[in-house]
């Protein structure tokens, strides 16, 4: 499990990797919240490209960050989840709280 950050304009890009379960979300949560406090972005992009597994702990992680950003007028983008992770996100109704981007912005502009 590893997290990389990239802050551009008002967008914080967080590249998650490995397995998102209850054990790993404890550390992910504190690292993401530290970055949110430091950069105060308008948009939080969670990139799932390198995430190999996610259970409902990941849903709790997204909902918790939504509760932080939403009162500040911010938004969350969930980018490039695998087919299975997209299924879990939809089952949890996450597309009502966040934008689901199955493809990268580059793929969208190329098509």
């Amino acid at each position: 499990m590893q997290i990389d950050y990239d802050m551009q304009k008002s967008e914080l890009l967080v590249r998650l990797s490995g397995e998102i379960d209850h054990h790993n979300t404890m550390q992910m949560r504190s690292e993401i919240d530290t970055a949110l406090c430091t950069h105060t972005p308008h948009t939080l992009v969670l990139d799932f490209r390198d995430v190999t597994f996610m259970d409902s702990s990941g849903i709790g992680l997204i909902m918790g960050r939504y509760k932080i950003l939403q009162p500040l007028g911010g938004e969350i983008i969930l980018r490039q989840p695998s087919a299975h992770i997209a299924r879990v996100l939809r089952l949890a109704g996450m597309e009502r709280l966040a934008e689901l981007q199955i493809h990268t912005p580059e793929e969208v502009s190329a098509s």
Binding site: R29, S57, G60, A92
Partner: peptide, 14 residues
């Protein structure tokens, strides 16, 4: 307080 989504059983059923 642990940010549990409350979806464990829903996922197990699904």
């Amino acid at each position: 307080e642990e940010e549990r989504a409350g979806l464990g059983f829903a996922i197990m059923q699904e």
